[in-house]
Design a protein around this nucleic acid. Sequence first.
DNA 1: GTCTATAGGCAGATAGAC
DNA 2: GTCTATCTGCCTATAGAC
Lengths: 205, 205
Amino acid sequence: MAVKRQRGDADTATKILDVAERLVQIRGFNGFSYADAAADLKITNAALHYHFASKAELGAALIVRYAARFADALAAVDTRIADAPAKLEAYAGLYLDVLRSRRMCLCGMLAAEYQTLPKPMQAAVVRFFDENEAWLKCVLEQGQAEGTLQFMGSVSDVARLIVSSLEGAMLMARPYGDIKRFQAAASQLLASLARATPQAEQMGN
Amino acid sequence: MAVKRQRGDADTATKILDVAERLVQIRGFNGFSYADAAADLKITNAALHYHFASKAELGAALIVRYAARFADALAAVDTRIADAPAKLEAYAGLYLDVLRSRRMCLCGMLAAEYQTLPKPMQAAVVRFFDENEAWLKCVLEQGQAEGTLQFMGSVSDVARLIVSSLEGAMLMARPYGDIKRFQAAASQLLASLARATPQAEQMGN
DNA sequence: GTCTATAGGCAGATAGAC
DNA sequence: GTCTATCTGCCTATAGAC
């Protein structure tokens, strides 16, 4: 850890996080073991414990990194895109990227397992969703001010509807192995928020 | 099993299903053990195995019973309620009842754990959602014909949106321990399908 | 149908050599 | 930092007495 390493030469801790993240997103926190991750990385169980003393610690680190990466992606959306409806589409696109790698949203998965998680992981999961909601509220307020978005109810409720509908659409798409299910749900959801236009938009990435 | 028993005197298999169902809905299939259920029932692990030889078998039985009960509830809705929008509200009410008992939808939970489930359980989960979708499609077609419901896109896509949004709203309500989050999401969703009326409806159970 | 007892394996975690 | 070896405990599951 003393030396900063170059791209493509990630340190072991980072590789562990990468592998564990993938496993949790696919199998759940209760559905993967240190042995799984160790086998995947071709190191031993003990080496894993050197980097992350407990599974709870590893789990918390996973969420923190995931949330930070997500926050960066949202900041990039704000930089890249000015239009509120386009921002929402980009937001849904972030979910779509996760689903394309055949994974569930890390925190959506952990939300299902919430009751069995150690306290620090629970707190981190809630923080992730709070941050999502806060970002969406800004976008919704912007869209409302611009007149590009139209909805009844509070921005808070609509933000929560967006998060929960997209998480639910991911959840349902996976058993069917059908990304189109997610796309159809997302495009309907976004269409219902867009200011009425002649025809519905297609989210055809 | 030879004798039919009276209400309130459920046989052991039924009690096992009741307890296991609750545990899976709260902790997930990978988050509960035979020992948990046995302790809860004050019988032994071995007695549990007498009734359900394997955890996979118990899991499959759980889904079959859950799906049957849900189908009965939907049939009851059809009998009790004629109006399509009211049927959708009753449908959301079924989810709300589950959430009130501090549980996740059994199949929503299993959808998250899908990749780790034995094949027969996977098939049963998909069947559950297919049945939900089929029922919703009927209601949506009815509402469209009556002119009481209004939406763009196919009935199939809208039915899937309803299922995934409600499942997602349940998923999100639990970490926050906040049933109102579900209610707010459900009422927005249903309002977006109702034929335009002066003011939004409230789902205030 | 329920029990005691236990097999056999895998879980998370640690000690200590290198 | 990674290894071998091992601990302890829990898991699913079974054998056989009652």
